Computed example of a mutant assay.
Amino acid sequence: MLNRRNAKPPKYRHHKARNLAKVTIDRRDIYLGKYNSPESWRQYAEVIADWTAGHAADEIAAEPRSNTNATDIVSSRDQFLCMAFSQLIFCDSLRDIETDLRAMPSKLYHAGFRSRMEQGTLADATRRRDWRIGRDLAESLISRVLISAYGRFLLLSPRGAK
């Protein structure tokens, strides 16, 4: 599988016969609209943002530094969803998160949760999981937002570079 972090993004290209913009991802052409129009560039930015973000939480968690004991408890993706949910509804503690999630058990699967979220499970996952997984996930999501907002790639210098 292609490593998305080191790969160059697919190019914005011209389909001359139809005068359309296109991008090819995984051997599939995606048509973006009239070539060189603002709308096609916006579409291109969205497609590339999706391509770049790709299953960021799962890919980042699959790196060797992730703790296997923490991954057995709850996936990085579910832990991230839990923490994002808690930020959105202003939870102050793990007990608040658990209570709010138990209030709507039938909707958890459709919200993207695949694991059972309990106070002890979240506490163990938070304690055991390497903090750099969260940092990498946040950086990936922030870059996706920047790409969507500005419609182009921003070259951010790597950590420690001058």
Rank of each mutant, 00 (worst) to 15 (best):
I25Q: 12
Y109N: 09
D100M: 15
W51R: 08
W51I: 13
A61M: 04
P64V: 05
A21M: 14
N69G: 06
D58R: 13
K107G: 04
D96A: 08
R114E: 08
I48Q: 10
D58I: 02
T52L: 10
T121Q: 05
Y44E: 10
T24G: 05
D96V: 01
Q87S: 06
A45V: 11
Y35Q: 06
C91G: 02
D100F: 13
E63V: 11
F85S: 03
I48M: 11
Y31S: 08
S66T: 12
L94E: 03
E63P: 05
T24M: 13
A123T: 05
D58L: 02
D72Q: 14
A62Q: 11
A62H: 11
A53I: 15
Y31V: 07
S76N: 04
Q87K: 12
E98R: 01
T24K: 13
I97E: 01
T121H: 08
I97A: 03
L88C: 12
R65A: 10
Q87G: 06
R127I: 07
R42A: 14
V47M: 03
H110N: 13
D26S: 15
S76H: 04
P38Q: 14
E98L: 02
M104Y: 08
E118P: 01
S40R: 08
L101F: 01
I30Y: 14
S93R: 08
F80P: 03
F80C: 02
S37T: 15
S40P: 13
L20S: 07
D50T: 10
R127P: 00
Q79C: 01
P38H: 13
C82R: 02
Y44V: 14
Q43D: 10
T99D: 08
A123C: 14
M117W: 02
A53N: 07
L32P: 10
T24N: 10
A125V: 14
R42L: 14
E59Q: 11
E46P: 00
H110L: 07
A45T: 12
A57Y: 02
F80G: 03
T52K: 11
S37D: 12
Y31W: 07
E39F: 08
L122Y: 09
W51H: 10
R77F: 00
F80Q: 03
F80S: 02
P64C: 04
A103K: 06
E118N: 13
D100I: 11
Y109T: 10
A125K: 04
S93Y: 07
L20R: 14
P105W: 06
H110V: 01
R102F: 04
P105F: 08
S76Y: 03
S75F: 00
A103G: 11
F85M: 02
G54I: 07
T68D: 09
S37P: 09
T24S: 12
G33I: 00
H110F: 08
S106I: 04
T71E: 14
L20I: 05
R116F: 00
Y109V: 09
P38Y: 07
L20A: 10
A84G: 06
M104H: 13
R102D: 09
I48P: 07
I73W: 03
L32K: 05
M104N: 09
D78Q: 03
R127A: 05
F90G: 09
C91W: 03
Y35K: 04
